[in-house]
């Protein structure tokens, strides 16, 4: 094990470049998958005819496939039927689809947990279906969803590392290039990037716990 050589300034700079891509891809995917996941989860909660069962099939399919396969499929199989993506866009699309499917289930469960009595009361006091949803159900539901949502975001951040298979220049990809310099480098480099992922994700989970404590 050669920690000094592995942690040379050049290598660290190179890894930082990778980390930037990781954070960028994760941040964009988190926002997109939250938006789509909330929409899909709400539609399924409201049991919108036609749309709801179609979304159910799509969500179940995506949730039950390996993300690695989805990433590769979007990048290299979808273009065969006319959808093209750059590597970054392809990875963001794959992450968004997969995580939105997961998030929609969290949202649906969160909304379902709001007691029926509340929606009925709101409706009988003259609020419309959408108004009830927006003013009564969603705000309460979202609050309950904070912990599972954050842990899903953490999963997403970890999952960006799977983009190595389409050669996206993120943290894991750059780590593999550095590791190839010397056979004494894998343990120091793996340890370093593990700590980087850990610090980011653990901070996120601490934030979520504080948020949870405040809202309850």
């Amino acid at each position: 094990m050669d920690f000094v050589g592995a942690y040379s300034p050049d290598n660290l700079r190179f890894l930082t470049e990778g980390l930037k891509i990781t954070l960028y891809v994760a941040a964009v995917s988190i926002v997109l998958s939250f938006v789509f996941g909330t929409i899909v989860g709400t539609i399924r909660y409201m049991k919108v005819p036609i749309l709801s069962p179609i979304l159910a099939v799509i969500v179940e399919t995506l949730r039950n496939l390996p993300l690695l396969l989805i990433i590769f499929f979007i990048q290299f199989a979808l273009p065969e039927i006319g959808f093209k993506f750059t590597v970054t866009a392809g990875v963001i699309t794959a992450l968004t689809l997969f995580e939105a499917a997961m998030i929609s289930e969290i949202v649906r469960a969160g909304l379902t947990s709001i007691p029926k009595g509340q929606t009925e009361a709101a409706r009988s006091s003259g609020l419309g279906v959408l108004q009830t949803l927006i003013h009564i159900v969603l705000p309460q539901g979202l609050r309950r969803m904070v912990p599972p949502l954050v842990s899903q975001f953490i999963s997403l951040l970890k999952d960006t590392s799977l983009a190595v298979i389409v050669a996206l220049a993120e943290l894991m990809h750059n780590a593999q290039i550095v590791m190839a310099q010397n056979h004494q480098y894998p343990i120091p480099i793996l340890l370093l990037i593990a700590v980087v992922y850990f610090v980011i994700n653990y901070t996120l989970s601490l934030l979520s716990r504080r948020l949870e404590a405040r809202t309850v």
Binding site: V57, T61, L78, P79, E80, I81, G82, F83, K84
Partner: peptide, 18 residues
């Protein structure tokens, strides 16, 4: 069959996009 039904509804029929 199910999977390809899902993808082909969105995909159109052109075999090669470019």
């Amino acid at each position: 069959a199910l999977l390809s039904a899902c993808t082909s509804t969105g995909g159109g029929t052109s075999a090669s996009g470019g």
